[in-house]
Design a protein around this nucleic acid. Structure first.
Lengths: 308, 308
DNA sequence: TCTCTCGACTAGAACGTTCTAGATCGACGA
DNA sequence: TCGTCGATCTAGAACGTTCTAGTCGAGAGA
């Protein structure tokens, strides 16, 4: 209760007009000062700033965005359950902020469909909607794209007027290989994704990377798939082989979990004897705890570039 | 390009005034129709609605909230990396929506501090800020609470003016026990959390629940802790016992992971021979994949109740 | 017939900001 | 002395909505 004014706690937050009255200037001038744009002398700038701070002024983002012709707002839908969406959102915050954009995030969950999430963004009048891993079909995508420019991340689409950004599958797996080689691994195995989306790129990325390190003769690609079961089956085959690898790059996290599970059950020391690396669009998961996220940054940059 | 008007794609979305002109009525009447409040005849209501739909009208949430005295907006900060925050946010969406509130969510991440997230919410003029698992110290909490009513979830606080909601530890563990008993389990063990926060409540909840089911004589509480290591150690002791339990309720997910890991290494079939249940604030994780979330719902309801 | 009420509708003022178009003033060159 | 210029500041109109205070008829009661 150190508040000088007799205002109720949290009620009636001060406005530009309040600050202007207190400082004895016009609201326009306060606006100029708060935005840091030219048009005020250093002296008054300091004085107004002090008054504003003293009153605890916080600008009303709604009123500001309402007045501005362009809202400089980017809408993002993401899946609350998908761990790697978290990485993407985080880097989008950074990338958007650096360019003077705000981010409005709207979550998708079992009880909250993508349509609801997108509708909420439309009401916020964002200039573009970034959909992470959207599951909408092409028709819905097309009709939505008529209302707001759309950008798909982690999914390909050929719909007219919809841009899309997919992670650099080949490059990402390459980074995983680089990482393992830098840790001293030489006998690498890739458990591939069979005919799952992106499997070809990741297989190719693995092959290129081991070749780059001159390890092709010691490397191996075994058939796998996108599920835990596929991973287990592949790991079983690996254990029967005459010479065991020291590191496994799995198609994705679920596949990696399957590999991991079987190795542990067979008394293999992970990561002592064998390292297991999963790769899932934006996140490299090394073991159950250590994680490196590199690709998401890439995706966020691509997203921002696409927005410009 | 089936748009009748010559409008550019996505540009200049129609406003109330546009709809009003098209329908030959006042903006106020359109507003009445769009909000579904009384004050219009059924005939014009239908006509205006049709015009609005035809033009693809979407209300501007900013302008609406600016005009309204109370914004009916709830701000939420959550950790992008914390899986169970996802559950909480999802249920908050539901609970808030049911009460006519909107949710503005603002993420916390390694590169985006809680202060930044809260500041963003303040700029949106939300009526209350719900902080999930806040790590702010009491001083910051207190000063923030002067600007907006605060509600802490999954953390206790004695700061003046800050409400807090913590999950019902005792009841949650009770639900876990109920679940296991309903699956046919009779020999239950609780690996407790030693002196970790909430450990007492969970231990008590376990004891009460097994007593309720008349299974006290077959139940057992063994010393554990909040980490994987604690879980492993406790599991080791369990395996040496003369009669093994069929289900383990661990203090939290990490502890459960430790239990699980050791059991698997010792060739115990999970969940065939033994079921392992972790409990972490809002989420019950049964095995590595199956999950039931029940407590988060509880927390969301408590949050909403507190808001009223 | 005169007033009253009631339902359907509207004019115009908010909300808090930014933007456009000046106003004011001291300095400076001619 | 006069105009001009730049720096500093201000008045007032937007932005798209909701809210307040009506207006306008039509039917009811006296």
């Amino acid at each position: 209760m150190t508040q000088p004014a007799g205002r109720r706690t949290g009620r009636a937050r001060p406005t530009l007009a309040d600050v202007a009255r207190e400082a004895g200037v016009s609201t326009a001038l306060v606006s100029i000062v708060m935005r840091g744009v030219p048009g005020a002398s250093d002296a008054t700038r300091a004085r107004v700033q002090a008054v504003a701070d003293g009153m605890g002024y916080v600008r009303d983002e709604r009123a500001r965005k309402l007045r501005q012709s362009n809202s400089r707002l980017i809408g993002v839908t993401f899946d609350l359950q998908a761990a790697f969406h978290g990485d993407l959102v985080e880097h989008l915050y950074g990338a958007a902020g650096a360019r003077g954009f705000d981010l409005a995030i709207s979550a998708v969950a079992p009880t909250r469909g993508e349509d609801v999430a997108i509708q909420a963004l439309l009401r916020e009048r964002c200039e573009v909607a970034v959909l992470l891993g959207s599951a909408l079909d092409d028709a819905v995508l097309a009709s939505t794209a008529q209302r707001v420019p759309l950008l798909l991340v982690a999914r390909r689409s050929e719909v007219d007027g919809v841009s899309s950004v997919h992670s650099d599958d080949a490059g990402g797996v390459g980074l995983a290989v680089d990482h393992l080689v830098s840790l001293g691994h030489r006998r690498l195995v890739h458990v591939d994704g069979a005919d799952a989306p992106g499997a070809d790129d990741r297989r190719r990325g693995f092959a290129l990377a081991v070749e780059r390190h001159g390890l092709t003769s010691q490397a191996q690609i075994v058939p796998g798939g996108p599920t835990e079961h596929d991973g287990s089956r592949a790991a079983e085959a690996l254990l029967d082989a005459p010479v065991r690898p020291t590191a496994v790059v799995a198609f994705n996290d679920r596949c990696a979990a399957g590999v991991l599970d079987l190795l542990v059950r067979r008394q293999v020391d992970v990561p002592g004897d064998v390292s297991v690396v999963g790769y899932d669009d934006s996140r490299l998961a090394v073991g159950p705890h250590a994680q490196m996220s590199t690709i998401s940054q890439n995706a966020a940059e691509m997203a921002e570039a696409a927005i410009d």
